[in-house]
């Protein structure tokens, strides 16, 4: 739905408009919030921040016409600001890594070596490209397992596999990724 269509819906049914907004941009907001808070927030922190973002969006969407034209850009900005703010508060209060590897697979992705001259941005781009080259469902499995810290049983529902299949597939995909990364100088 476009911003104008959502605005029209807001006039007739605010609740429905909010539902559509969250349905359409929920995962986008979640991805942004998670990206900022994955190292310091718990699942509850992330959900709380997610709700704060949508509360702000509902309010601003109602009171500020200017956001109607670029609603996605606006939502991204609100999400980023909220997440950064929350990150600072969480880091100041109690820095802790809320996610633990419950399946003993953390060593698969740690201790890779890379040239110090490669900057983070370039490294991210290369890594994502190599992960995508693995194809589906391996790409989704690796990202959800190691980036979103999902359990194999949770990922299994997304990719219609059993949890044990996800685990073995994950191990094999990491092996393939290791070979691909070695070709571009990222070694273990």
């Amino acid at each position: 739905m476009t911003g104008n269509e959502l605005k029209e819906l807001l006039d007739t049914s605010p609740a429905e408009c909010h539902r559509r907004l969250m349905k359409e941009y929920g995962r986008y907001v979640y991805a942004i919030v998670f990206n900022k808070l994955r190292s310091c927030g718990t699942k509850e922190d992330i959900e709380e921040c997610f709700c704060d973002v949508f509360t702000d969006i509902f309010i601003k969407f109602e009171y500020n016409e200017k956001y109607v034209n670029d609603i996605k850009g606006y939502i991204g900005t609100v999400a980023k600001h909220n997440a950064i703010d929350r990150f600072r508060r969480l880091s100041a209060a109690n820095s802790h890594n809320a996610y633990t590897d419950e399946e003993g697979m953390a060593e698969l992705v740690s201790d890779f070596s890379v040239d110090e001259r490669v900057d983070s941005s370039e490294l991210r781009r290369i890594l994502l490209q190599k992960i995508k080259e693995l194809g589906e469902p391996d790409t989704t499995i690796l990202i959800q397992k190691f980036y979103y810290n999902r359990k194999s049983s949770e990922i299994a529902k997304t990719v219609s596999m059993t949890a044990s299949s996800v685990r073995s597939r994950c191990t094999r995909a990491m092996e393939k990724l290791r070979v691909k990364l070695a070709e571009v100088g990222i070694t273990k």
């Binding site: 995962r27 991805a31 998670f34 992705v109 890779f112 040239d115 980036y147």
Partner: peptide, 29 residues
């Protein structure tokens, strides 16, 4: 050479990568 954890490098990723991470994010049930 520096040591890295592969998936930690995605933290604070650029805005353009967010599209990819959105597509690969878990579904909100």
């Amino acid at each position: 050479m520096k040591k890295i954890d592969l998936f930690d490098t995605f933290e604070n990723a650029e805005d353009e990568l967010m599209e990819d991470f959105t597509d690969m994010s878990p579904n909100i049930d």
